[in-house]
């Protein structure tokens, strides 16, 4: 009888010592928010202002804006001048048509290939990105804005 009890004890001890502990026992964390990048290409005139609407569907990540290109219409190259880029909230008329952008964050920047403006936009809703000439353009130019948002 004592021997049987000893055998049971030894087997139970061995099994417990050799148990793996790699199974997660805590609930998995919610999926991290992901960012999407939208690109807006257009032409801006001297003293002009352009705006584009986009939707933020999650919170937890900043929205960034990058003036990635500012180029002449009729020749290759870069127009290397300061422009104002911004983020804001959309203005719509009674028919829900986009009629403007109320800027809440702006920065003056030259074209580059990484984000120049960042803002945490909450709540998840429709927002807008803007580009404006602050007096440096001598002619109309092509531009590319990249907006990365959750």
């Amino acid at each position: 009888m004592r021997l049987t009890a000893l055998i049971v004890f030894v087997l139970a001890t061995a099994a417990s010592f050799s148990a793996c502990d790699d199974t997660p026992t805590t609930p998995s964390a919610p999926a991290a928010p992901t960012a999407a990048t939208e690109r807006f290409d257009a032409i801006i005139d001297p003293k002009g202002l352009n705006y584009f609407a986009f939707g933020v569907t999650q919170s937890g990540l900043p929205t960034t804006v990058n003036l990635a290109s500012l180029a002449p219409l009729d020749r290759p190259g870069v127009v290397d001048v300061n422009m104002q880029i911004g983020l804001g909230t959309t203005i719509r008329d009674d028919g829900n048509n986009l009629i403007g952008c109320e800027r809440r964050t702006t920065i003056d920047t030259r074209p580059g290939l990484s984000a120049q403006l960042s803002d945490m936009l909450t709540p998840a809703a429709n927002y807008c990105a803007t580009i404006a000439d602050i007096g440096n353009l001598k002619e109309s130019v092509n531009f590319s804005l990249r907006v990365s948002h959750p």
Partner: peptide, 20 residues
């Protein structure tokens, strides 16, 4: 000559330069 880096045009080929 001119040398630049930018974003590919969405149509028609070529580049929209950001640095040159």
């Amino acid at each position: 000559i001119g040398l630049g880096v930018g974003l590919p045009r969405t149509s028609g080929g070529g580049c929209r330069l950001g640095v040159a």
